[in-house]
């Protein structure tokens, strides 16, 4: 394997990692509060708001049903307005974050639904405000399952980021496609695959360990 290919692989790996984790971060920044709100506004929850809940739910479902490759192209004007360009890693980060957020919101909502309802009741009986319930009860209690949600999201983003090539964002996906598929280079193709597999395994392993560490049930 030539040095230039190795350089490409290293660069591609780095770009994939950046895209995955940065968009994962922004995805959570939007998805976590959305998921909490989806949960709290449900029927029989402490901030029951049927209209808001249904509106949020519809928005989340709409964004979840757009295929990612379409989302990238569809969002170009928005992306340009936010990061000033529609090509490169930073241009891929916008659709990746927006694509991940509704997915994360649903995962968060689900994690919170998994908590025993008695916990909220006990906290209310002890005089906790809704905000205190969120950050002192719901989030800490759901932490192990939120970490699992993060692993799932990051692994999904590794896959999504391969499509970042469409906007010239680079990443392992693009290396594999350009040099492996179009350039007909089996070694590069397989190296890309191996690197992606390792990346996914590392994320899953770290996620499992962290989740277990915080799980005291």
């Amino acid at each position: 394997m030539s040095d230039s290919i190795i350089d490409l692989l290293v660069k591609g790996t780095w770009e994939t990692i950046v895209m995955t984790f940065v968009s994962g971060f922004f995805g959570f920044l939007i998805g976590l509060p959305t998921g909490v709100l989806l949960f709290l506004t449900r029927k029989n929850q402490i901030l029951e708001q049927p209209v808001l809940n249904r509106t949020l739910s519809v928005i989340v479902n709409v964004f979840r049903s757009i295929p990612f490759i379409i989302l990238i192209v569809w969002m170009i004007p928005f992306t340009r307005a936010i990061v000033g360009t529609s090509i490169g890693v930073s241009a891929a980060l916008v659709p990746l974050s927006i694509g991940a957020a509704p997915f994360i919101a649903r995962l968060v909502e689900n994690s919170l639904l998994g908590l025993p309802s008695g916990l909220i009741e006990a906290a209310r009986a002890l005089g906790a405000t809704p905000l205190q319930i969120v950050y002192k009860v719901l989030l800490p209690e759901a932490l192990p399952s939120l970490i699992n949600a993060a692993s799932i999201t990051l692994i999904t983003l590794v896959g999504y980021s391969a499509m970042g090539g469409a906007v010239g964002a680079g990443g392992l996906g693009q290396v594999g496609y350009q040099y492996g598929y179009i350039g007909y280079d089996a070694l590069t193709m397989n190296s890309v695959l191996a690197l992606l597999v390792i990346l996914v395994f590392v994320i899953q392993f770290a996620g499992d360990r962290l989740s277990k560490h915080f799980d005291h049930r």
């Binding site: 025993p116 916990l119 009741e121 006990a122 800490p140 209690e141 915080f214 005291h216």
Partner: peptide, 10 residues
């Protein structure tokens, strides 16, 4: 409560 409702993370 019947089921205690303690916070498992604490």
């Amino acid at each position: 409560f019947q089921h205690f409702n303690l916070l498992s993370s604490r």
